[in-house]
Design a binder for these strands. Sequence first.
DNA 1: GTTATTAAAAATGTAAAACAAAAAAATGTA
DNA 2: TACATTTTTTTGTTTTACATTTTTAATAAC
Lengths: 246, 246
Amino acid sequence: MTRENDAANALDFEPVLNYRVSEAIYEQIRNKIINGELKPNDRLPSERKLIEIFRRSRPTIREALRMLESAGLIEIIPGSGGAVVQEISAATVTQPLGNMILLKRIRLLELYEFRIINETAYVQWTAERRTEGDIKKMQNILKQMHTLKGDWETLLRYDSEFHKTIAECSRNEMAKIIYNVITKPVRDIMYAKMGELTLKQQEFHKNQLMADHDCILDAIINQDVDKVKELMIDHLNHFKHLIEDE
Amino acid sequence: MTRENDAANALDFEPVLNYRVSEAIYEQIRNKIINGELKPNDRLPSERKLIEIFRRSRPTIREALRMLESAGLIEIIPGSGGAVVQEISAATVTQPLGNMILLKRIRLLELYEFRIINETAYVQWTAERRTEGDIKKMQNILKQMHTLKGDWETLLRYDSEFHKTIAECSRNEMAKIIYNVITKPVRDIMYAKMGELTLKQQEFHKNQLMADHDCILDAIINQDVDKVKELMIDHLNHFKHLIEDE
DNA sequence: GTTATTAAAAATGTAAAACAAAAAAATGTA
DNA sequence: TACATTTTTTTGTTTTACATTTTTAATAAC
């Protein structure tokens, strides 16, 4: 830190940005969405009306709309007037995260390491806070899994649903968000790797998966926080090797 | 799942998208960046040249560029010809994730709970992986903090820098991202709350803050993983009440 | 009167031409 | 060579126009 920087920080100066009109328009609309003035399914004024409102040309307006769309904040349907404010989804985060993985800025092992400590926490919270309804929901998923003869794809879908339910039952909104964000890239790789294994190996993993889940749910029901933590760590470590050296 | 859906899935149909020319151009350029054909600091052709290459009008080209920019893949500097491919950074994930947190209106206590389990993990990783350089960096921050007489604002800035350094030294890219996303909303509230306290209370918290940090750094240096975990949990719990009932 | 068809209106998608502003490159001068 | 000025290039913005698609309204048929 230089002295100049300290002085600037103290005075709370900020670099002058937003010199582009389209960015300024983007900012204004974005803020109204962020602070709730514009809610999901609300319609923005049509392009022509936005021209009148902002007193700017149509290409400029359209560039702003393109940015909003790219950020996942609106969806534009031609013909039917006005862009529609979107319910923000995990995809808006999953996509750039996927980019980072593809460009090797994040190693999958780091992501998995991160997943382990997070899901361990979620399952602990769930063990503490689970309701009768939660238990029924999780039991149902496992029951369906057991009656399943099927392929890996469907099995992994149920596996994902089980973990997702745990995240939801943790009653922590951040847990849900992060779960959704992390899951996709990790699961994409795991599914691919699973296909490369022999049938015997696949069978082994399948049995392990279901046994692990059963134990975890038992511990959740018994609210055995320490045990559920250990079980989840073991469970995730069982499948860690599938994404190693990637 | 209906039978129709299953049939569609089996045939691997996908909805027809990309009807917009600007999106198709965006996709083409994005793919060249993702697969490495275009590397960071490479320059895209100028808008005029892109018009010739894609044989499309300028507004269409510009909308594609605006999308690429919005995704954090390029930066456009006026005058100096051509958009520059960006080194993809955590910011591309931080921004939409930040949007999500703001839009989901997550309760601060949930966010803080999430912060505790995450930062506890980060500090454990850091204790395991810290280098001599890491230690020096953290010692430096604490030294500056001790010589500081100042106000809460500067103190909290150093506090933030200490925690941020821990996240960075954890050598997990997700840790950095999540730290950056969580920090700001939590810290904004804490700073406001701190101002409402009496001078005596402020002094007490100030001393606690610095004592905690010293202990944590000691444990990091000694690579005492269990202890550092306890210390971080205690440290964050000391300040938890500042955001309660918010 | 109700329904189906058709035409009009409105909205987004795209194109072309023009000018402003700012940065880089080229030029000329000392 | 070093500097200042001019020219060129590039992005930012505006205006006008037309194509395409969807919605709405009007019209015709039953």
